[in-house]
């Protein structure tokens, strides 16, 4: 009984704070507390018509999509190169590729800031995308590498035996069987970019401000209901990403199961 209550309390602790924000964004005045004085969409209106938030949203999407594209491209190629390889060079490369995830993000941000500034890449889109590729790549390599290593070698051989040329076999057999791993890597990569604020604090200029960066500035001043509206919109967005991820993982699990039954 006590055990159940404790668990319930922890789950409430995880979820309730996030949910508590949503109703406040529909408040008709600027006091951030309950009971709500009345309902209105004024904060949504002011967010959706604000050039600042629009630019931030566009920047977040542009940077996120570009960084994800390159992270998936580079990460998938590298995973094929790394798969089923042993030895000191291979483990050194694995550590190299995973380390942007382990090194505290502030160090990555500061190092990139000092390095990109003389190249005139701070305060540019290119600089932000480069920095986000660095932090997104491990999220692609982890699932894709695992998927490649779990691939049945015989599939490729079967394709060859059936007369497929290597490239055909790759595109028709190998790639489809790792595509769901690539997709989940892409989602994680996008989420990593979409959630980043530390790199944006150092590398982005006023024209590259992303949603989290703009929220950061907002939170440093007095917090306005506008922010709760942005938070709600972002919550819907990340819930969609999460649901996409869930369905993809279910698909992957099914595929693995059917592969092991076969």
């Amino acid at each position: 009984m006590l055990f159940g209550l404790v668990c319930l309390a922890v789950l409430v602790f995880l979820i309730a704070p996030i949910l508590a924000v949503i109703p406040l964004s529909f408040s008709s005045n600027s006091i951030l507390s309950y009971p709500l004085p009345g309902l209105s969409l004024r904060w949504y209106e002011s967010v959706l018509t604000s050039p600042k938030w629009y630019l931030a949203f566009v920047n977040s999407m542009k940077i996120g999509l570009a960084a994800t594209f390159f992270a998936v491209l580079l990460g998938t190629l590298a995973s094929f190169g790394l798969a089923r390889r042993q030895g000191p060079i291979s483990s050194a490369l694995r550590i190299l590729i995973l380390s942007p995830m382990i090194v505290p993000i502030v160090l990555v941000a500061v190092a990139l800031y000092l390095f990109l500034a003389p190249l005139q890449l701070t305060n540019t889109m290119t600089g932000m995308i480069i920095a986000h590729i660095v932090i997104a790549v491990p999220f692609v390599v982890i699932p894709v590498l695992t998927a490649i290593e779990q691939l049945d070698h015989n599939l490729g051989r079967a394709a060859a035996a059936c007369g497929a040329r290597p490239l055909t076999a790759f595109f028709r057999v190998t790639l489809p069987s790792i595509s769901s791993a690539m997709a989940s890597g892409a989602l994680f990569a996008f989420a990593a970019s979409f959630d980043d604020v530390v790199i944006a604090l150092f590398v982005a200029g006023p024209d590259q401000r992303t949603l989290p960066r703009e929220m950061y500035s907002g939170l440093r001043e007095t917090i306005s209901p506008e922010l709760t509206a942005v938070a709600t919109i972002m919550m819907i967005f990340s819930t969609l990403l999460f649901l996409l991820m869930q369905s993809m993982q279910r698909k992957r699990r099914r595929m693995l199961q059917s592969a092991s039954h076969a």
């Binding site: 959630d195 949603l211 989290p212 939170l219 938070a231 990340s238 819930t239």
Partner: peptide, 9 residues
């Protein structure tokens, strides 16, 4: 999966 900034808000 919810953005860190959203949770901080």
């Amino acid at each position: 999966w919810t953005s860190l900034l959203v949770r901080t808000t």
